[in-house]
């Protein structure tokens, strides 16, 4: 999921200082799990804004905030509150914010969160980055642990000289990705494979931005034409 973090309140207030009234949109997916876009987060921000003398015309948790069409339909019952507000606050990720920009052509849209990374929830509201969406997955070759992401240098062929007692050069708080990969491959009795196959340099053309994907066959044809 996309990991988001609430912006510092003073920073947010500075960004939105020119507006008086707000409509808040959360998201029931990742941002809810992160506690940045669930109903509680909306309620808390509503209170905080009111305490600053701002008006909140309404708010709701969108099912999937990055889904433009669905969110548009979900917003229909909120027409009055939306007409009354000067500004829309998005409490999900950067994709959610940009979905709102598409929906609200004439209203300013501001983000209340910073979007950090694609990760796993390891414990309640504790997150680790696990995948960098590189476009060509090599997990099959590394025992299912991603060195592109878990190694700060993205090394594909083994630990660097900075690995100290199994810990990473960059931070003693994280275990060296290559020690983890080694240990896992050893447990699976696949060390020979690790040794025999030097991984080639990655093809970064697979992750040139912005990426698009058309997964529907009939649309693919249309796009070609």
């Amino acid at each position: 999921m996309i990991i988001t973090k609430k912006r510092d309140f003073q920073e947010l207030m500075e960004n939105i200082k020119n507006y008086r009234s707000f409509f808040l949109i959360g998201c029931s997916e990742c941002a809810s799990l992160c506690g940045t876009g669930n109903q509680e987060a909306i309620d808390a921000l509503t209170e905080a804004l009111k305490a600053e003398g701002k008006e909140v015309t309404g708010g709701f948790v969108a099912k999937t905030g990055c889904q433009v069409l669905g969110t548009k339909i979900e917003l229909k019952p909120f027409k009055d509150a939306l007409d009354k507000t000067e500004c829309i606050l998005i409490m999900s990720c950067g994709a959610g914010t940009q979905a709102a920009v598409e929906i609200f052509e004439d209203k300013p849209v501001y983000a209340t969160n910073d979007s950090l990374f694609l990760g796993n929830m390891t414990r309640f509201q504790m997150f680790d980055e696990r995948c960098s969406l590189c476009g060509k997955c090599i997990l099959d070759k590394t025992g299912g642990i991603c060195p592109v992401t878990a190694c700060p240098k993205g090394i594909l062929n083994g630990p660097c000289g900075g690995c100290k007692d199994g810990k990473c050069e960059v931070s003693p708080d994280i275990k060296c990705a290559w020690v983890r990969i080694y240990e896992r491959m050893k447990r699976l009795d696949r060390l020979q494979e690790l040794c025999d196959n030097a991984l080639e340099a990655k093809d970064w053309s697979m992750s040139i931005k912005p990426r698009t994907l058309v997964a529907r066959p009939e649309k693919k044809e249309e796009k070609k034409k």
Partner: peptide, 16 residues
């Protein structure tokens, strides 16, 4: 690094 700890992953890399 001949004294790397753990050593074996370092040796695998050496061979590569």
């Amino acid at each position: 690094t001949p004294e790397a700890n753990p050593l074996e992953p370092q040796l695998i890399k050496f061979e590569k």
